[in-house]
Simulated scan of single mutants.
Amino acid sequence: MKTVSEVRSHGGTQGVYTHRSAETGTEMTFSVFVPDHGDGEKLPVVWYLSGLTCTHANVTEKGEFREACADFGLIFVAPDTSPRGEGVPDDAEGAYDFGLGAGFYVDATQAPFDKNYRMRSYLEEELPALIGDHFPADISRQSIMGHSMGGHGALTMGLRNPERFKAISAFSPIVSPLNCPWGHKALGSYIGNDQSAWREYDACALIEDGARVPDILVDQGTADNFLEGQLKPELLQAACAKVGQSLTLRMQEGYDHSYYFISSFMPDQLAWHAERLAQ
């Protein structure tokens, strides 16, 4: 692991780091905020997964999470959204919603993407081990959150790994790739045309198939221009209601899809995570 930068902020250290990933076969960049802590103290970890076109930098620079993380004693980890580098395949037309910056947090099975696009295994196995080895992280206390495509990643990863994550939340998540254009393009190309194989990457399908967690928190802006065509939070609401899965869905009046929205509710979501990570 190499240190790109470390700066003092809000009574802690904000760092950016790179390492060579065995899963993706590429250099991967991620950021970590570590609040001040006592010698030998281990802190709970909040994972944040970003959306389409983003890198680790978007939330690191605009998410306004550090003050809350310092107050609650939370390590905040922000990975990249896809592999990058020479030879990594991209969308043939350079579109924003597939390929570089759009890994959808899956392990691709279709060539040529299956060699590098292994974001699921990278985040479920490889990067957590690195965080545990190099930072004062209490790996027994982890939670996960994300935005848009990253909200999809947080929901599906959390539902697949309830023993690992004590809390799951999302901003404007893609709740059902089976039922939106972004999902059809990404999963069709990464996973193939058999939609039964998509279910492990669809939060609504996972809940229908028996996945359960104590609670899910979602904040969604009512002025989000992707609300009706891509995000469809009512599908998650219906899936949870049908089986009794606890969901707190907060429709935030007038907010859009941007980091102005995310940063407005980031401290509140982190307080929600901190309460559950303390249990």
Rank of each mutant, 00 (worst) to 15 (best):
K166E: 05
V45T: 09
W272Y: 15
H152K: 05
H19Y: 15
I75S: 08
V106C: 07
E23M: 14
D224P: 01
R84I: 11
G210N: 00
L74E: 08
H19P: 04
V106Y: 01
P267S: 09
E124C: 07
G25F: 12
G158S: 07
G25T: 13
W198H: 14
K2C: 02
E125A: 10
R84T: 15
A271L: 03
L74G: 05
N116H: 15
S246R: 13
F30S: 11
T26C: 15
L43F: 12
G101N: 09
V7P: 01
G132I: 10
E64V: 03
V243H: 03
W272H: 03
M28D: 11
I262G: 02
L235V: 02
C54N: 15
Y122D: 06
R160H: 00
G103W: 02
P83S: 10
C204S: 06
M149C: 08
Y117F: 15
E125K: 11
K232M: 06
D256E: 12
W198E: 05
F226C: 04
E253S: 05
G132A: 15
G38M: 00
D138I: 04
D133V: 00
W198R: 03
W182R: 00
H257K: 08
F226G: 00
D114W: 01
G183A: 02
P79R: 11
M145F: 04
S121I: 03
S82L: 10
L247D: 11
V88L: 13
A22K: 13
Y190V: 08
K166R: 14
A211E: 00
V46N: 07
P233M: 11
R164E: 02
D39N: 00
S148V: 06
S264R: 13
C54W: 09
P267T: 09
F226Y: 14
E253I: 02
D194H: 07
R276L: 07
Q245G: 08
V213H: 08
S21Y: 09
Y122S: 05
